[in-house]
């Protein structure tokens, strides 16, 4: 089975290669080199994936990523792809190292000031609203459909309005982030607070627990997996909101500002460096929330089985 699949892969690669060579007749050697690199590294990945080695789980994706980077680098180098279309990874890395100061300032402005403050305010407000909504059944029945509806809307469109109200600095970006993260966290928290079964709630009332005792000891812990689900969705939304809001006006610092001006100057290496920053910040942000989730909801089956 594996053997035949490898054969098919090789066949497809070969056909692609023939097609490419006949198109770019004068660059035969370069094309063959690139295809060889791809074939060798992919073969190594196949071997790795089927080896059953315990480190393969994280080595395979790394090898795949490295393969893509290498092919990207080779393609750019061999075909002299102009900078305004696609800069080579090495060039992006150099730009990243050289402009680390600017990138750091942009990171502080967009992620720490705009994104993080908005995230904390928005998630906090959503959580408190959810507790209130859960307390009153009428509110829950009324607000939840509205909240579900709002969570699906292109809320990022409020950015021009909020920039107009709160000025060009990070406060307006924080406001956009607040609006963006509010509804997903609200909807998830309300769903989580209803997660306990009637039996569990009855047990609490046989203990003569009052509303807040049963809230803190039973319903809040039970809601935590849902709350963290909302918080994880909100991390990406926070960064998207903070960056896109800067397209509508910003001081002369910030990731969205840098991206839009660098695109205008066709300095694509700088744009890619900012994208690297955004990717690192996004994964780190998500990672921190996921770690907090692990610490808080250690009892949940999805956390235990690993």
């Amino acid at each position: 089975m594996t053997f035949s699949r490898t054969n098919i892969t090789a066949l497809i690669a070969g056909l692609l290669g023939v097609a490419a060579i006949s198109t770019f007749g004068e660059n035969k050697i370069e094309i063959i080199t690139i295809l060889m690199c791809w074939a060798v590294l992919w073969f190594a990945n196949v071997k790795l994936a089927h080896s059953g080695w315990k480190h393969a789980r994280w080595l395979a994706p790394l090898l795949f990523g490295a393969t893509l980077l290498l092919l990207w680098e080779l393609t750019v180098a061999f075909f002299d792809v102009p900078l305004v279309i696609l800069p080579a990874p090495s060039l992006i890395a150099m730009r990243f190292v050289q402009s680390i100061d600017i990138l750091w300032q942009d990171f502080v402005q967009t992620i720490l000031k705009g994104g993080l403050s908005g995230y904390i305010i928005g998630c906090g407000a959503a959580f408190l609203t959810a507790v209130l909504v859960d307390r009153f059944d009428f509110l829950r029945r009324g607000l939840l459909p509205v909240g579900n509806f709002m969570a699906a809307l292109p809320i990022v469109g409020t950015a021009p309005i909020l920039v107009m109200w709160y000025g060009f600095n990070w406060q307006s970006k924080a406001a956009v982030v607040v609006v963006m993260v509010f509804f997903p966290v609200l909807v998830n928290t309300v769903a989580g607070l209803r997660e306990t079964s009637a039996m569990q709630r009855d047990l609490m009332s046989t203990y003569a627990a009052n509303y807040w005792q049963s809230f803190f000891k039973l319903r809040l812990p039970a809601a935590m997996p849902f709350v963290f689900n909302g918080l994880k969705i909100a991390t990406t939304l926070a960064l998207v909101g903070a960056i896109v809001a800067e397209f509508f006006g910003s001081p002369t610092v910030g990731m969205g500002f840098r991206i839009s001006t660098s695109v205008g100057q066709l300095a694509l290496d700088m744009v890619w460096a900012e994208i690297v920053v955004a990717a690192l910040a996004g994964s780190a942000f998500y990672g921190v929330v996921a770690m907090a989730e692990k610490a808080v909801t250690f009892w949940h089956p999805s956390q235990r089985e690993k």
């Binding site: 395979a60 795949f64 990523g65 991390t235 960064l239 998207v240 955004a278 990717a279 996004g282 998500y286």
Partner: peptide, 19 residues
């Protein structure tokens, strides 16, 4: 599964719209 899937998951955490 082993080489592409982790990247698909990680890409969910990236504000990809910056591109």
């Amino acid at each position: 599964d082993m080489s592409v899937m982790p990247w698909a998951i990680v890409s969910q955490t990236i504000p990809i719209i910056a591109l």
